[in-house]
Structures are given as structure tokens and as C-alpha cells.
């Protein structure tokens, strides 16, 4: 019964209402192929959102993760093309390491110079994007050049259904990876010391320090994990769309942050759950993709996402209303 009173339950209720509403406006929403493509859209944004959730629980905000995702993805794919390497484990390990190291840079600067995470990550994002585009290259790696192993991996389906006209559609297997990462992060946050230290640090850094948490280690855990998740999501994205574009993900930061906030995480830190974030990502992706189904012009998409973000932060701000002085 405790669940019914949690924010996660409210988010679930909002999701259900939104789904019923969209389904009433256009029943095509409930077609299996539409639902499968929605789930597929969730994967990359969702994995990035897990990283952003971690940062927000710690009381920070991260706008550099999309740049890290691009760095991991583009560096790895370009090296694979250059070396004519065709594999999976090593490329994914490399992109995770690249993302993690860049995250370590964020953690170092934020912790050492005690600087506002937003401004630090604005700076590191510009540094990383500038270096990738300026030194590595600006051209896309297209499907004809993309390493085959990556493309085939991205194509993997859990199962395939057939439409009446004989064409097939499947549910991507990547959803398993996403949900697996979500469960893992949930367990780490709930049941390990380092996970609890993130909540403690986010609620009150000074108190966390006094009860004996090493705040430096917490910061490193938070930003390295966020960076590694972003790097992984970047390469996964490119293997799912069969394209490596060094200008990808521009502006996606906001969508991801909006999804995490929709999921009930508070920017003041100390609050937020994995389940809420997964639901928030689903709501965001669903509404973005259903505007066309509902007959709304796509130029309205940004207004809708922005308004959703403002509405969600208003609700969380009213919930977390604290004395401001």
C-alpha cells in the first residue's frame, strides 16, 4: 500500500490516463507495431536518463552527457572503420571507458573547484564536442561503412510478428539491455553503501560528510557512471540507426532532463527513483511520438516538451517546497 502513495504511483496513473487519451483520439496508437517502436525509442534516451537520474539525486545537473555519448560513439566507430575491426565486446568496452573517463573529468572539476555542476558541464560539453568535431572529423559514417557486427547487433529482435500484408516487425532486444541496466542501478541505489551515499550527499552534502561518507568518492561514482552510461548509449544508438553522426544528440539533453524530472526526481537532490525515471522516459517519448497520431503539427513538439518540463518541475517544486532562506 505504500506504493500507492508514492510519486511513482502518481506517474503511473498519469501515464495510464495519457495512454487512454491518446488511444481515444487515434486508436492506431494501440497497434503492436506502434508500441514496439515506442519501446525501441525508449532505449537510448532511457539509458542516458539513468545517468542523469544519478546526477540529479546527488543534487547536480549534467548537460555534457550528450557530448560524451558522441565522443564515445564517434571515436569508437571511426577507429573500427580505420582498423577494419569487426567485433562487439572491445568497442562497447572502449566507449564505456571513454565516457567514464570524461565523467571522471567532470567529477574532478566539480569536486576540486567546488563549482556549480551546470556551468562545469556546459564547459566540458563544449570542450569535448569542439575536440571531436575539430580534430576527429565532421563527416558521418554511413551504413555502407559501418562495421557489420554493430549493425547486426542493433538489428537483433526479441521476437518478430507478422502484419496482415506479410511484412514483419519485431521488438528490439536492446530493450532487455536497458531494463537490465535499470534494475542494476535500482539495486545499487537501494542496497549498496555507495548508492545510499548518493542520496545522502544529494540531501545534504555536509551531513553526508559528517556521518562519514567520502564525498569525493561519491562524486566520482556519480559522474563516472553517468559518463559511462552515456558512452554506452551513444554507441548503442549508432548501432541501432546504422549511422555514426558526430553532430548527433544536439539538444537531446533537455529531453532527457525533462524525462528524469517527469519521473519525479528533484533537482535539489536526495529524491528520485529508477522506476519513476523509466516511467518518465516512457511518457516523454510517447507524447513526442504521438503528436502526429493526434494530428498536431510537429512544429509544436518543442513547445510541448518545454511545457511538460515546466509543469513537471512546478509539481515537484510544490511537493518539495522548502523554506528558501
Amino acid at each position: 500500500m505504500r506504493f500507492l502513495r508514492s510519486s511513482d504511483a502518481i506517474i503511473l496513473a498519469i501515464l495510464a490516463v495519457a495512454m487512454i487519451f491518446i488511444g481515444l483520439v487515434n486508436p492506431a496508437f494501440w497497434q503492436m507495431s506502434n508500441l514496439f517502436s515506442l519501446l525501441k525509442e525508449n532505449v537510448v534516451i532511457g539509458i542516458m536518463a539513468l545517468g542523469v537520474l544519478l546526477v540529479m539525486i546527488s543534487g547536480g545537473i549534467d548537460v555534457s552527457f550528450t557530448a560524451f555519448a558522441v565522443a564515445g560513439m564517434y571515436l569508437v566507430v571511426r577507429s573500427m572503420v580505420a582498423l577494419d575491426y569487426n567485433g562487439l565486446v572491445l568497442p562497447f568496452a572502449s566507449t564505456i571507458i571513454i565516457g567514464g573517463l570524461l565523467g571522471l573529468m567532470n567529477a574532478g572539476i566539480i569536486h576540486k573547484f567546488k563549482m556549480i555542476p551546470l556551468i562545469v558541464t556546459l564547459g566540458t560539453a563544449s570542450v569535448v564536442r569542439g575536440l571531436v568535431l575539430g580534430l576527429v572529423g565532421t563527416s558521418n559514417v554511413n551504413i555502407n561503412k559501418m562495421p557489420e557486427a554493430l549493425v547486426n547487433f542493433g538489428k537483433t529482435d526479441l521476437f518478430v510478428l507478422e502484419r496482415a500484408n506479410g511484412s514483419t516487425y519485431g521488438l528490439t532486444a536492446m530493450i532487455v539491455i536497458y531494463l537490465g541496466l535499470a534494475v542494476a542501478l535500482h539495486l545499487v541505489l537501494k542496497h549498496t553503501m555507495i548508492g545510499r551515499s548518493v542520496y545522502a550527499y544529494g540531501a545534504d552534502p555536509e551531513a553526508a560528510k559528517r556521518v562519514g561518507f567520502s564525498t569525493g568518492r561519491t562524486m566520482i561514482f556519480v559522474y563516472v557512471t553517468a559518463g559511462a552510461l552515456a558512452g554506452f548509449a551513444g554507441l548503442l544508438h549508432s548501432s541501432m540507426i546504422w549511422l555514426a553522426n558526430p553532430r548527433d544528440f544536439v539538444g537531446l539533453e533537455l529531453d532527457v532532463i525533462a524525462a528524469v524530472v517527469l519521473g519525479g526526481a528533484s533537482i535539489f537532490g536526495g529524491r528520485g527513483t529508477v522506476l519513476g525515471t523509466v516511467l518518465g522516459v516512457f511518457i516523454l517519448v510517447m507524447i513526442q511520438n504521438s503528436l502526429i497520431l493526434m494530428g498536431i503539427d510537429t512544429t509544436w513538439q518543442r513547445v510541448v516538451v518545454g511545457a511538460m518540463l515546466v509543469a513537471a518541475v512546478t509539481v515537484t517544486a510544490l511537493r518539495d517546497r522548502r523554506a528558501l532562506v
Binding site: I61, L118, L254, I257, A258, V261, I267, T299, W300, Q301, R302, V303, V304, V305, G306, A307, L309, V310, V313
Partner: peptide, 13 residues
């Protein structure tokens, strides 16, 4: 941060 991030998107939209 969040208020202006959101309104910024609304304005661009």
C-alpha cells in the same frame, strides 16, 4: 536552471 531550461524550449518552440 530548470525553469529557464523549460521556458527556453517553449520560446524556441
Amino acid at each position: 536552471i530548470l525553469a529557464t531550461l523549460g521556458t527556453g524550449q517553449v520560446f524556441i518552440g
